[in-house]
């Protein structure tokens, strides 16, 4: 009695596309179980410390100066929300991605399963969405505790912060998979992330910058994220402005994912 081999083959479960992306996401979530405590401590403490020192302490000096409309804390807090989303996204998209290609070779291990390159990329990006959203949620709660929330519209600042974060995560995924040496990260951090953090309207209005530099600041995704969050937390966001910011940030995400897909395929499919 010969068993029907094709029937046996057909019996094997082949995971669907959603399952595959979920499996890739699941890997990162599983790994996170070991380190989440540390990240929770810093996700709570960092906003508390920054808002207390800069928002309240330095805010006293700025408010005394009387050259800014409204309290400095209300200006700064939503800006920091967007900026932190950018930093979290950057952190999660640099070494983890390069490591998964180069050192730990996690992606290669995944490729030996039914997962494809796009499942791996999308699952990992989805994980970054989770990390950015969860840390932004903590930040938003801290801002509320500092009394710096003026409107229920502030709840929408959470997806706005995520959008801002992903506008960095996607292009950085492309960078981390396209550039082969980790030394690039120090430069990216020092010459891209930190300057944007300091000059994209987080700490002071872009109008304070020299005229030639203002268009540069307006071109950064962070400025759009900061503006979006600030108007939402203040409850003054108009639909037209919102659509402009959302559209611009989405453009970066689409471009970033496309580039990342290209480099992922090149790194993972050609060299095996």
């Amino acid at each position: 009695m010969q068993p029907d081999t094709t029937a046996v083959l057909r019996q094997r479960h082949v995971p669907g596309s959603l399952d595959r992306v979920g499996a890739s996401f699941g890997f990162w979530a599983f790994q996170y179980r070991r380190t989440w405590r540390g990240t929770v401590v810093s996700s709570v403490l960092t906003p508390v410390l920054f808002l207390a020192a800069m928002g309240i302490g330095l805010g006293t000096l700025v408010d005394d100066g009387g050259r800014l409309d409204g309290a400095y804390l209300l200006f700064l807090a939503p800006g920091l929300l967007a900026a932190t989303a950018m930093q979290t996204a950057g952190f999660e998209s640099m070494y983890p991605v390069m490591g998964a290609i180069k050192w730990v070779r996690t992606y290669h291990a995944m490729l030996a399963t039914p997962l494809g390159v796009s499942d791996i990329l999308l699952g990992h990006l989805l994980w970054v969405v989770f990390r950015v959203t969860s840390s932004a949620a903590i930040y938003l709660a801290v801002i509320a505790l500092f009394g710096a929330v003026a409107s229920p519209m502030a709840l929408l600042a959470l997806p706005a912060a995520t959008l801002c974060g992903m506008a960095y995560a996607a292009p950085i995924f492309a960078f981390s998979s396209g550039y082969e040496k980790p030394s690039g990260f120090a430069a990216l951090e020092r010459f891209v992330i930190v300057p944007m953090f300091l000059f994209s309207g987080t700490f002071f209005p872009v109008s304070q910058l020299p005229d030639v530099l203002q268009p540069v600041a307006y071109a950064t995704p962070l400025w759009h994220g900061v503006e979006l969050c600030r108007a939402l937390v203040a409850g003054t966001q108009t639909l037209a402005d919102a659509l402009l910011h959302i559209g611009y940030l989405s453009l970066w995400i689409v471009a970033g994912v496309t580039a990342a897909m290209f480099f992922f395929r090149r790194r993972l499919e050609s060299t095996g």
Partner: peptide, 25 residues
Amino acid sequence: VIIVSGFFEPFFYLLSIGIGLGALV
């Protein structure tokens, strides 16, 4: 390059907080 680039962080802070925000203070 790593050593040289280390100089820029405090310099950026000076321009941002010191000068940009300083104008408001």
